[in-house]
Amino acid sequence: MMRRRSRSTRQAHLERAYEANAADLLSYFGRRVTIPADAADLLSETFMVAWRRGDRMPVESEQARMWLFGVARRILANAARGAARHSALTGKLREHLQALPTEHVDAETLDIRAALDAIPDDQSELVRLVLWDGFTLPEAATILGISESTARGRYQRARIQLRELLHEHQYERNTP
């Protein structure tokens, strides 16, 4: 029967295990992942498991080390499975997108995109949500986390600026 350790004893044990093994675990992960930051994330996950399941970690330091490396191995396997799923889904999405017909981009579309890029981001995103994505102004306001009255004001300012910018683009394109 496993005896429960007090919270402070458990915390002290976890701290000792961290100090004794974190550098080796980080190296373990670092040799197995391609992105260095992933090693730090995996180390963090390992010690999150150790913290949650600290009553299962052996008291003896060498046994605790082996237990931590076992946890690390399972976390690494989970990360590899997740990466494989992500890669497979990305591949499927890429194939799906390549099968879609390509959109013809004419000069007018380029002018509109340039005009949208020229106005403030908070206004251009609002216009894109309403005109390109088909949301109502109140729905777009909710998505952006702003009030409807703020959205109406931004949308009105954006329309005025876009009208001016598009008029300038039209004039520039038609001037020899």
Rank of each mutant, 00 (worst) to 15 (best):
A99M: 10
G70C: 10
T150S: 14
H96S: 09
T136D: 09
P101L: 03
S149N: 11
A83H: 08
P101V: 11
R94L: 08
L97K: 02
R81S: 13
L126V: 01
R152A: 14
A99G: 13
D111G: 08
A141N: 05
A141K: 01
L110Q: 14
L76E: 14
I75T: 13
M66T: 14
D106W: 02
I119G: 01
A77L: 12
Q123H: 12
T136I: 05
S87E: 15
G91Y: 01
S124T: 11
E108K: 04
P138S: 06
A114H: 07
P101N: 07
L93T: 12
I119T: 01
E95A: 10
G70K: 00
T150Y: 06
Q63R: 15
A80E: 15
E148H: 07
A88W: 04
H104F: 11
D111A: 13
D121I: 08
T136Q: 04
Q123S: 08
P138N: 08
A88P: 02
A88E: 15
V105N: 03
H86T: 12
D133L: 06
D106Q: 06
E103Q: 13
H104T: 14
T142P: 04
P120S: 13
A88N: 06
Q63L: 15
R81D: 14
A77K: 04
T102K: 07
A115G: 07
V105S: 08
D111T: 09
D117V: 00
I112S: 00
G145V: 13
